[in-house]
Design a protein around this nucleic acid. Structure first.
Lengths: 147, 147
DNA sequence: TGTTAGTTGGAAATAATTATCATTAAGGGA
DNA sequence: TCCCTTAATGATAATTATTTCCAACTAACA
């Protein structure tokens, strides 16, 4: 996991560099995204911030995520059930392993992915820009409970 | 690509086996899914069928897709922009390469995927049940146009 | 400190999907 | 073949997630 403080600084700097203002609301959202160990949802972020910032609007959370996403500083994880969750700590595409019971998300290390990307590019003649790789299953905790 | 006729028979038989009635509407939907070379959307399927079957309801298309999905006979491709498209010809999870310009979808052959699944299982201790692998990029046709 | 353009909050609009409910019809049994 | 039961359908309303609108506000810079 990247250092949340550094990620925070990087995202804020990128916002400045692109001429965006740094508001308290924006700071609060970026802070959560920079940590985002648990891959929070929009709703989740909104609820967290409302504790200290009761007037925070849901629209503002959406707006900022769209903005930060457009700067490439947060990764959107769209799941088959239609829910979206976010990773601002590791914003580059990377594989996920998701437990369908407890919704836990783990980031595995997979060396073979880069090679696979090349394989796809040469087979299809596409210029590959992005990818998404998710595994769904049951984590060891939930497997143990099942008994 | 699997033989559309065979896929059609398989899906219909599975519906029968599970005690579902075979209606004209259902037949029309299954027919399109069994071909589904172009990975149609719900809207797309609805429009196609309405040509010959003007009373076909959008709700019926949704209902049948949910049903056939629950029988494991159609694969739902959920895209980052929120759109869903369907593959009833190859219903098992398989990689896709999607052109972000023209929305073309290609199915590449990737031998290394099975091995990757094992790698993930042993690294995370998950029981892997399902996966999703999509590459996004620009196809050779659109690359040529860009000039 | 004043100006200005980007940002916010709250509500309304939008889009995709699901639920509701009265009506219809598939398919098994008499 | 004709009922009868029950699932399926069509049309619409409800739901959910996200986006847009707009008036009021404020960060940033001179």
């Amino acid at each position: 996991m990247a250092d949340p403080k550094k990620r925070f600084e990087i995202i804020i700097q990128k916002l400045r560099d692109n001429g965006h203002k740094i508001t308290p609301q924006r700071l609060a959202i970026v802070k959560i995204l920079a940590e985002s160990e648990d891959h929070p949802s929009v709703e989740n972020i909104h609820v967290q911030i409302k504790k200290d910032f009761p007037t925070m609007s849901l629209a503002t959370v959406y707006r900022n995520i769209v903005l930060i996403k457009s700067l490439g500083e947060v990764l959107e994880l769209g799941f088959p059930d239609g829910s979206n969750r976010y990773d601002g700590n590791k914003p580059n595409p990377h594989p996920h392993v998701i437990c369908i019971k407890c919704k836990k998300i783990v980031d595995p290390d997979l060396d073979s992915l880069d090679e696979m990307k090349k394989e796809v590019a040469s087979e299809t003649n596409f210029e590959i820009l992005n990818h998404r790789l998710d595994f769904f299953g049951i984590c060891s905790d939930c497997l143990a409970e099942k008994v």
